Computed example of a mutant assay.
Amino acid sequence: MTPDTLGPASESGAAAGELELHSGGELVSAEDAALWARLAELDQAAEEFEPRSDNTLRSYASDWRVWERYVAAVGIPLEAGTPGAFLGFVIWLGKEGKAPSTIQRNLYGAAVSLRERGVAVHPDGPKKAKKAIDALARMLAEAGEQRGRGKAPALTVMQLRMMSKALPDTLKGLRDRAILTVGFGMAARRSELANLLARDVVVTEKGLLVHSRYGKTGARSPAIKKGENEWTCAQRAWLAWAAAADLDPDGPAFVRINQHGQMLGKISGQGIGIAITAAAEAVGLEGITGHSMRAGLATAAREAKHDYKTIAEQGGWAPNSAALHEYLRIVDQWADNATAGIGM
C-alpha cells in the first residue's frame, strides 16, 4: 500500500464535540480522533512503501509466471504459501535444470508476490526452501556439474583497451567505444547508461562528470579522469561520439543505430548489454556482459590500492554491498595471503 492509494479519511460516526479515547490514553475530540487515525494510516503506508525500479518489477513479474507454471504442474492452489509449497518449488525447479542462483531469485520473487496478494506466507517456508537450494548447490559441486553461465568475469583494463581499439570509426563504433569507456569509468549498470541524457555527461578540464539520475542506490555523479591511453580515455571517446551524432543536450546520451547507420532513438539497457558483449566477442573474449564492467572497475581500482569507500562511491555500491565485498576479496586474497612468506 502506498500513500496515493489511500482513499478519503473515513467518517468517525461521532458527533462534533464528542470525546474519544486516543491511543495515547488522553481524551480528544472526534475530529482529532479521525485525524490521528488518518495519520496512522499514512504512517503505515510509509513503512510499507518500497520504490522499485522497472527492472525489479519485470523480475518479480517473471518470477510470478514461473510460480504459476509450478502450481499448475503439481496441482496445488496458486496462493499456497506453506513451507511444503516452497520446498516443492525448489525441487521442481531443480528437476528442470535451473541453477541455484536462478532458483533463489525465483523463490524470493514468488514470496514477495504472494505477500503482495495478501497471502500469509509462513515465515519458515522461504527459510527451509533456501536450505534446499544450498543442498542442491553442494550436490552439483560434488558432482562437478555447473548450471547457468555463472558470474560475469571482471573486465580488465587491457581487455577494455583491446575491445575499444578494435571498434571501427563508424557512428556505431564511436557509440560503442563511448559506452565501453564511460560505462567502465563509472562502473555503470546497463540501465544507468541507457537512461543518461546528453547533458548528464559534462566535459571538464580534468575529465568527465556523469550525473546518473536513476541509479539503484539513488542519484550519483561519478567523476572519470582523463585517460592515459587514447583507447580507454572516456573523455576522448565521449567527445568523438557526441560530435559525430550531433546529440541534442536534452535527448538520450546513447541511441539505437540500425544497420544503415541511422539513429533510431533511445537505446535500452538490453541494447547496452548487447553492444558490450558484441565488442568482447569481436576480439575473442567470451562471457563478457554489461556487469563485467562493474566488476572490472572494482577489481582494477582495488589493485591500484584504492580504498573500499572510494570504490563504493564511484560505482554507486551500498556501503555494505556483498557484491562489492566479493570483488575486493578476489584482489585482497592475493595481496594478503596466509601462504605468503611461510617457506612453502
Rank of each mutant, 00 (worst) to 15 (best):
P8K: 03
P8A: 07
G13Q: 04
G17D: 14
L21G: 02
G24C: 14
E26H: 01
E26R: 01
D32W: 09
A33K: 09
L35N: 07
W36S: 11
E41V: 09
E41H: 08
L42D: 15
D43K: 03
A45M: 08
E48F: 09
F49A: 14
F49T: 09
S53W: 14
S59H: 11
V66A: 06
A72K: 13
V74R: 05
G75L: 12
I76K: 03
P77I: 01
G81F: 00
G84R: 13
F86E: 04
L87G: 07
L87Y: 04
V90A: 11
W92L: 01
A111H: 12
S113L: 14
G118Y: 04
A120I: 06
P123Q: 11
A132V: 12
D134E: 10
A135P: 01
Q146K: 01
P153S: 07
L155M: 13
L174N: 12
D176V: 06
A178E: 09
A178D: 13
A178W: 15
V182H: 04
V182E: 02
R189G: 07
E192M: 12
A198F: 02
D200G: 08
T204S: 05
H211S: 07
T217C: 06
R220T: 13
P222W: 10
I224H: 00
I224C: 00
I224D: 00
W231N: 06
A237N: 08
A240G: 08
A244N: 02
A245H: 06
A245Q: 07
P249M: 07
P252K: 01
A253H: 08
F254A: 11
G261A: 13
G265W: 06
I267F: 04
I276W: 14
A278M: 00
A280N: 03
A282H: 01
A282L: 02
V283S: 10
V283M: 10
R294C: 07
A295L: 02
A298M: 15
A304P: 11
H306I: 04
D307E: 14
Y308M: 13
T310P: 07
I311Y: 03
E313C: 05
G316F: 05
P319D: 14
A323L: 15
R329W: 13
Q333P: 00
N337Y: 01
A340I: 13
G341T: 00
I342W: 02
